[in-house]
């Protein structure tokens, strides 16, 4: 170190002594503590990006009256700012679930986000009423209902009826199960829900063990 004296700056009132260990130690310590203070200061700024208490509080369950829903129709309710669909499936629609089975990526819903009491291909508490979050598992668009099967749908002759996402063309059957080779990786999410009576449904809450 002391050999590179020729590079050391100096003037009339100062001369640099480079190999000063005391200086080095202080420099390192100052840098470490200063850095720690800097990181500490960043914490509240980064944390402010997280959802606020107000946003967290907005997730209350919603009650729905499904008495006016006709077979073959669907309704949409808002839960946590997201659309939740309730589809009242008729016989043909339930029948179509079997037909679509071979075209699906995950027919058994093994990697899907759904409550433990949702099972089988109907993915519903009552087969007739299908409840799911109407948000595509790809990038969060809301798919469009395409209930008409076959060529008339404009999707394809073998279309069994279901949902089509307008953004990237992911297709789902009438149980919200995704077709093979679609941009969406998973089946549509089923929210926790439970029946208060035959015609009243609560979304966002379930009775434990039901």
């Amino acid at each position: 170190m002391s050999n590179d004296k020729q590079d050391v700056p100096g003037g009339a009132s100062f001369s640099c002594s480079c190999a000063d260990t005391n200086r080095r130690q202080l420099l390192a310590a100052t840098a470490v503590v200063g850095g720690a203070v800097g990181v500490g200061t960043a914490v509240p700024f980064v944390a402010s990006f997280l959802p606020s208490e107000r946003a967290k509080a907005a997730g209350a369950p919603v009650e729905v009256d499904i008495s006016r829903l006709q077979p073959g129709e669907m309704m949409t309710v808002e839960w946590r700012g997201k659309p939740v669909w309730i589809v009242r499936r008729n016989k043909e629609m339930l029948e179509s679930l079997k037909k679509s089975e071979t075209m699906l990526a995950d027919p058994g819903s093994s990697r899907s986000d759904q409550p433990s009491y949702i099972k089988g291909m109907a993915r519903a508490i009552k087969d007739e009423y299908f409840v799911c979050v109407g948000i595509c598992t790809h990038l969060g668009c809301s798919p469009t209902a395409k209930f008409v099967p076959g060529a008339e749908s404009g999707i394809g002759d073998d279309w069994p009826g279901g949902f089509l996402c307008p953004c990237h063309g992911s297709r789902f059957d009438l149980s919200g199960r995704v077709f093979k080779s679609m941009p969406a990786p998973d089946n549509l999410v089923i929210p926790p829900h439970t029946y208060l009576s035959d015609t009243r449904l609560i979304i966002g809450e379930d009775t434990k063990g039901a």
Partner: peptide
């Protein structure tokens, strides 16, 4: 409208 994606985005 967070409930409805337009048909073509």
């Amino acid at each position: 409208d967070p409930m409805k994606t337009p048909p073509h985005i």
